[in-house]
Design a protein around this nucleic acid. Structure first.
Lengths: 205, 205
DNA sequence: GTCTATCTACGGGTTATTACTTAGAAAATG
DNA sequence: CATTTTCTAAGTAATAACCCGTAGATAGAC
């Protein structure tokens, strides 16, 4: 029997997943949680084999919860769920050590076989995700250096050059240089365009 | 027997809702669709009492589909579903003539009673929504004039003043004036901030 | 040790944006 | 018909952003 905890802030999703997994005898949902905080509380008294968790949740979100679970309970396998087939997310999830990453619109069979695979020690990522990873790993986003990403984030929050300079404690001229390089790398030539890019590619958080 | 069509691009949501509504004998899900296009096709051969539809969907989204359904089949009641408790959405949905607007995280009982209410001719909006509407209906967004919204949209697409002027065939000085007024009304003082605002409040489409 | 990437920063000049004011024409509202 | 709103536009001056190159310091890779 595979013991599983389900974490999602939407009851509807939890019900939907429950309905699916109940079709399979070998999987037992021993508990449910609405967010990362609840999950961590439950883990003090409860030992699941697998945690299946949404990425987007209030309070403590899925990414943070993933990192905390992996730190405190490295033997618990974690499968992340997401609406978004987004490269940035996926890379972070993989780096954080999740055993699986599934898009929410997969079929029940796929979900069950993923859980079993992960339980048996493999990793499992949605087909779409393999494709996404294959696409442009060395493209666009990775070209931005840490500092550039930081500057871009501040830009996306509506900071002007001077504020960014103050915030990062560097010269306005340096901010200008970073900004110029970012624009060149992303082939975007207005600040507004950068804001849009940052938000769309989730580089603003 | 209330005949209902369920429209959502995520099978999981449809399953979750089905599971809930199956508890009630008086509701019959006669069909499901993944997006607005499929819904419209189905409506040529199928006559539901109520369409229950997600707002965010690929291809033809919920808002557009709502308008089309209301135009072609005004007798069909429509309940919109959304993850977001977003004022802009709600106002648009109400203006477009939907009979209901529910947040996806309501309970099964609430959902059933909403369907029955709507079937009987009332309108039904989530409690949260009434609160949201009560909040600041006369605030922020409604103060932007048509022209200002247009300018804001172009700003959010990365246009600079000159390009906007060319696009709208007005003087750069006029664009400056509009922009200044927008900033004042929204109490935002950078262009980047405007882009963010526009995207977050969905004024960029 | 050399090479490369990254972060830092400036000079000099050009262009864009902003701040503050004012104001006419047209349309909608009363 | 009077009033208000909206869209239009400009003067003037200050400020910010952008474009071009250049370059030192530091850390990591080969």
């Amino acid at each position: 029997m595979i013991k599983l905890i389900l974490v999602d802030d939407h009851p509807l999703f939890r019900e939907g997943i429950s309905a699916r997994l109940s079709m399979h005898q070998g999987i037992d949902i021993i508990s449910e949680a609405e967010n990362g905080r609840q999950l961590l509380e439950q883990l003090t008294t409860c030992s699941p084999d697998i945690v299946m968790m949404d990425i987007n949740m209030p309070d403590i979100n899925g990414m943070d919860a993933l990192e905390m679970v992996k730190e405190k309970y490295p033997s618990i396998k974690v499968i992340m769920l997401s609406m978004h087939d987004d490269k940035e997310y996926i890379l972070n999830v993989i780096r954080a050590g999740a055993e699986g990453y599934l898009l929410k619109d997969i079929s029940g069979e796929e979900m069950i076989s993923a859980i079993i695979k992960v339980y048996e020690g493999s990793k499992c990522f949605s087909n779409e995700i393999a494709e996404i990873l294959a696409q442009d790993t060395n493209q666009k986003n990775d070209v931005l250096t840490t500092r550039e990403q930081l500057v871009l984030r501040l830009i996306s929050h509506g900071y002007n050059n001077k504020k960014i300079a103050v915030e990062l404690d560097i010269s306005v001229r340096t901010v200008e240089t970073h900004k110029r390089n970012i624009k060149q790398k992303l082939m975007i030539n207005t600040t507004s365009g950068l804001v849009r890019y940052a938000i769309e590619h989730r580089l603003d958080k």
